[in-house]
Simulated assay, not measured.
Amino acid sequence: MGNLDRARLKLYLVTDSTGMTQDLFLSRVEAAIRGGVTILQLREKDKTTREYLELAIKVHEITKKYNVPLIIDDRIDVAMAIDAEGVHLGQSDMPVDIARKLLGKEKIIGATTKTVLKALEAERNGADYLGVGAIYPTTTKVKTVLTSVDTLREICEAVSLPVNAIGGLNKDNIDILQGVPISGICVVSAIMKADDSEAAAKELFQRILA
Score class of each variant (00 low, 15 high):
residue 7 A to K: 15
residue 9 L to Q: 11
residue 10 K to C: 08
residue 15 T to G: 09
residue 18 T to D: 10
residue 20 M to N: 00
residue 24 L to R: 13
residue 28 R to H: 14
residue 28 R to A: 03
residue 32 A to I: 02
residue 37 V to G: 09
residue 41 Q to E: 15
residue 42 L to Y: 06
residue 47 K to A: 11
residue 48 T to N: 00
residue 50 R to L: 15
residue 52 Y to I: 03
residue 53 L to Y: 15
residue 53 L to N: 07
residue 57 I to D: 00
residue 58 K to E: 13
residue 58 K to H: 01
residue 58 K to F: 00
residue 61 E to C: 06
residue 64 K to D: 11
residue 67 N to K: 14
residue 83 D to N: 15
residue 83 D to G: 09
residue 84 A to G: 09
residue 88 H to E: 10
residue 90 G to N: 03
residue 90 G to H: 05
residue 96 V to F: 06
residue 98 I to G: 02
residue 99 A to Y: 12
residue 100 R to G: 02
residue 101 K to M: 08
residue 103 L to W: 11
residue 103 L to D: 02
residue 105 K to V: 05
residue 106 E to R: 14
residue 107 K to H: 00
residue 107 K to V: 02
residue 110 G to T: 12
residue 117 L to P: 00
residue 120 L to S: 02
residue 123 E to I: 02
residue 127 A to C: 06
residue 128 D to N: 12
residue 134 A to P: 14
residue 141 K to A: 04
residue 142 V to L: 14
residue 143 K to P: 05
residue 148 S to N: 12
residue 148 S to Y: 06
residue 150 D to Q: 13
residue 151 T to I: 12
residue 154 E to I: 11
residue 155 I to V: 01
residue 157 E to D: 05
residue 158 A to C: 08
residue 159 V to C: 04
residue 162 P to C: 05
residue 164 N to F: 12
residue 167 G to L: 09
residue 169 L to V: 01
residue 173 N to R: 11
residue 177 L to N: 04
residue 184 G to E: 03
residue 193 K to Y: 14
residue 193 K to R: 15
residue 197 S to T: 08
residue 197 S to Q: 10
residue 197 S to Y: 10
residue 199 A to T: 13
residue 200 A to N: 09
residue 203 E to Q: 01
residue 204 L to K: 04
residue 208 I to G: 13
